[in-house]
Design a protein around this nucleic acid. Structure first.
Length: 737
DNA sequence: CTAGGGTTAG
């Protein structure tokens, strides 16, 4: 079959099948050197053709090289290896190298367990597995959690007395540790005389993966001569166990040895720096990266971007990100979740948009960064798109947090029904999914549903945690269910043994104070083992406002001023209390105090999403392109409100008392602007959804109730604390918020 | 001629 002229052939002419020349000769053949440098399948095929021309392809040696390349190399192709194997099986079945390469190739494939099939065929042809065979087999069992098969192979290795071979031994430990059989792993380790760093490290990572990082550390200390990999494994073990400080300490210990850190050490360490906010160490690693020539390494740069953004240096992170020549999906995800982590949600969504335009395929992690941004901004259209995308492309994702994030997003975007739908369609619910659903219902004021859901989850055997009870208690708070709330609070401690945290006390104090039970709230505050935070004083202060308790309000406000001197909202609340009691001189005094301190209250801001674009409005905002139409709609609204007997409540007028907008400040509140824009930009009868960054003021609340009736629209408004569903002149919060 | 332990985003 060889139709090549003799003159074009290199020094070795063709060989008859099975008659290999000495290895020494073959090994140095230039075509085989090419194969060693080859990194893609097309080049491989060219080399293959060259080898056919020389006739060398008939030698077992070359065939084993070819099969090895296709089966094992990351740029290879396992099915091609199999076709090469099929072609010359008669000779190849007697060669160990080829079987081992095929078994190894399958251990790297998506279905590693199929390597066992090749193993049994190998036995069938009468070949004995050797010390090279077992490590790949154990790796396959480890990957596919095939405990039973692993044990049979273990027995096989014992029979052949290969179990104390260093490579076999270590992969055996690794296998038992990976399938969760730590005791077996330990037994194998203890029974063997082998005590090298490699087998120690295999056992250590097993302990770490089962959460026994302290046991892992004890083993680590026993290693006679620790090497780079064992140090890296120990540091990574601490990181995996979220013990970041200890990871850093471990690195400092490593620095005292003569083992230099590697790229992996630094990548792991950067994660610890991000979680602990260790900017200094992070920067030091940054220079190490440059000095050691890893400046353009993808993995390293990703880790640096992560560290910088988690340490709050988002601009440095972005600069690095923008400067990357090559970005993978992890780079994008890191940068996006960096923005989300720092609550820079608009930036997160903007970058997500760029990511899609760059044709990078998002994955589950991307959405874990994007969904909280949708939730916080109320970007429902994008949220819906994400849901559809996940449903279509990531449905099989076992990532339970993805579904939990979807529930949370729908709830926070005002679609509690959609949240319930996602929750019910999850094939296996997790505790966090129940918790997300529960707090969603609470946010929407559906206390009864929330409490029913709680019974359901208990019936199904889920053990409620502290977060569950934050949801339950806030459901009671939003609905004003004082007695029930107190019962659940008691049950939490007595039946579930959960020690109340600040958040639980906050709910209870809020619950009692709203109901006017200030004395009981005070007793609770005195009995807590921690100091009340600003949120607790703040909820007391707004309860004082609701119940007209001027004196108590003054006391509470002073405490709040001490705790949070920059909190302008506290000053505004106190001034509203004075205004409600007609104490205008006190109102003026507070304003002076505010001005003297040069403080600016957080401006009220309302956003509304129309056709996937989020529009933001500030009070009296005139920057919107549709400004003219919005304001004429606003006039129309005010006219209709007046005709329907609406009397503005001016008691909270300081709320937005910027000099320029004294006049008509109330009618131009950001939520009203957003509603006006919603009315002119959406179809009649459709639901309007708005998101406000502060609490809805009393005046807007009454106005919105009436607007829902006059325009026959359901208006769903999210404020700082909860949702208001306005319909037919009523609000779901029953005016208690 | 092959081979064992660690390797980024949540």
């Amino acid at each position: 079959m060889l139709l090549v002229s003799a003159s074009s052939l290199p020094s070795i002419l063709h060989f008859l099948p099975g008659s290999d020349p000495p290895y020494k000769v073959l090994e140095q053949h230039p075509y085989l050197n090419l194969l060693a440098k080859c990194n893609n399948i097309n080049t491989f095929k060219q080399i293959h053709s060259l080898l056919i021309k020389t006739g060398l392809h008939n030698t077992i040696f070359v065939q084993s090289k070819l099969i090895h390349f296709c089966a094992v190399s990351p740029s290879g192709d396992l099915s091609y290896a199999l076709s090469l194997f099929a072609r010359n099986q008669q000779q190849q079945i007697h060669n160990h190298f080829i079987w081992n390469a095929l078994i190894r190739g399958h251990s790297l494939s998506p279905s590693p367990i199929s390597s066992l099939y090749f193993f049994s065929r190998m036995l069938h042809y009468g070949l004995q597995p050797n010390s090279h065979t077992f490590p790949f087999l154990f790796k396959s069992c480890a990957k596919s959690k095939a405990t039973h098969e692993g044990k049979q192979l273990h027995a096989h290795a014992l029979k052949l007395s290969l179990h104390f071979h260093p490579h076999v031994h270590t992969s055996l430990i690794h296998m038992y540790a990976s399938v969760g059989e730590l005791d077996f792993a330990r037994l194998v380790f203890d029974r063997s005389p082998l005590r090298d760093a490699v087998s120690f490290t295999a056992l250590i990572t097993g302990y770490v993966s089962q959460g026994y990082v302290d046991d892992a550390r004890r083993l680590f200390d026993e290693i006679p001569t620790k090497d780079l990999v064992s140090w890296n494994a120990m540091i990574a073990g601490y990181v995996q166990s979220c013990r970041f400080e200890e990871a850093i300490e471990c690195f400092c210990e490593m620095q005292k040895t003569n083992i230099s850190p590697s790229k992996s050490t630094m990548v792991t360490l950067l994660s610890a720096c991000g979680h602990t906010g260790s900017r200094e160490l992070g920067n030091w690693i940054g220079s190490w990266v440059r000095d050691n020539g890893f400046g353009s390494n993808l993995q390293m740069t990703n880790a640096l971007v992560d560290m910088y953004s988690k340490c709050g240096e988002i601009d440095t992170a972005r600069q690095l990100f923008d400067g990357m020549e090559e970005k993978d999906v992890i780079s994008w995800n890191t940068m996006i979740s960096g923005y989300s982590y720092l609550s820079l949600y608009e930036e997160a969504l903007a970058l997500f948009d760029v990511m899609l335009r760059s044709n990078v395929k998002p994955n589950d992690i991307t959405f874990l960064g994007i969904l909280p941004a949708c939730a916080c901004l109320g970007a429902l259209d994008l949220g819906k798109w994400v849901y559809a995308y996940i449903d279509k492309n990531l449905k099989s994702s076992s990532n339970a947090s993805l579904w939990t994030s979807l529930i949370d997003m729908y709830a926070k975007c005002g679609c509690i029904e959609a949240a319930e739908w996602v929750f019910r369609s999850m094939n296996s619910s997790s505790l966090s999914a129940w918790n997300a659903m529960l707090s969603g219902l609470a946010m929407h004021g559906h206390a009864e549903k929330a409490l029913a859901l709680f019974s359901e989850m208990v019936d199904k055997g889920f053990q409620p945690d502290d977060i569950t009870f934050v949801g339950i208690l806030s459901a009671c708070t939003q609905a004003g269910l004082v007695d029930l709330g107190q019962n659940y609070f008691r049950s939490m401690m007595q039946d579930y043994g959960i020690c109340p945290k600040l958040q639980h006390y906050g709910c209870m104090i809020d619950l009692l104070a709203r109901a006017g039970k200030f004395e009981e709230a005070e007793i609770l505050m005195k009995n807590m083992e921690m100091e009340p935070d600003g949120a607790i004083w703040g909820s007391l202060l707004s309860a004082c406002k609701a119940h007209g308790r001027v004196e108590l309000g003054e006391y509470v406000a002073e405490r709040l001023f001490q705790l949070e001197p920059e909190n302008a909202g506290a000053f505004v609340l106190l001034s509203n209390i004075y205004a409600g009691a007609g104490k205008w001189d006190e109102v003026a005094r507070i304003r002076t105090r505010l001005n003297d301190k040069g403080m600016k209250k957080v401006p009220g801001c309302t956003s509304i999403e129309i056709d996937g674009v989020v529009h933001e409005f500030l009070v009296g905002d005139k920057f919107h392109p549709e400004c003219k139409n919005i304001y004429s709609m606003l006039d129309e609204i005010d006219k209709l409100l007046e005709e329907n007997g609406f009397v503005p409540d001016t008691s909270e007028v300081l709320y937005d008392m910027d000099e320029e907008w004294k006049e008509g400040a109330l009618s131009q509140h950001s939520e009203k602007l957003a509603i006006a824009f919603g009315l002119i930009s959406t179809k009649p009868g459709s639901t309007i959804r708005i998101v406000k960054n502060l609490r809805v003021c009393g005046n807007c609340h009454s106005a919105t109730k009436l607007i829902s009736k006059i325009f026959n629209r359901q208006i769903i408004a999210r404020d700082r604390n909860r949702f208001h569903h306005f319909k037919d002149g009523f609000c779901s919060c029953n005016d208690c918020w």
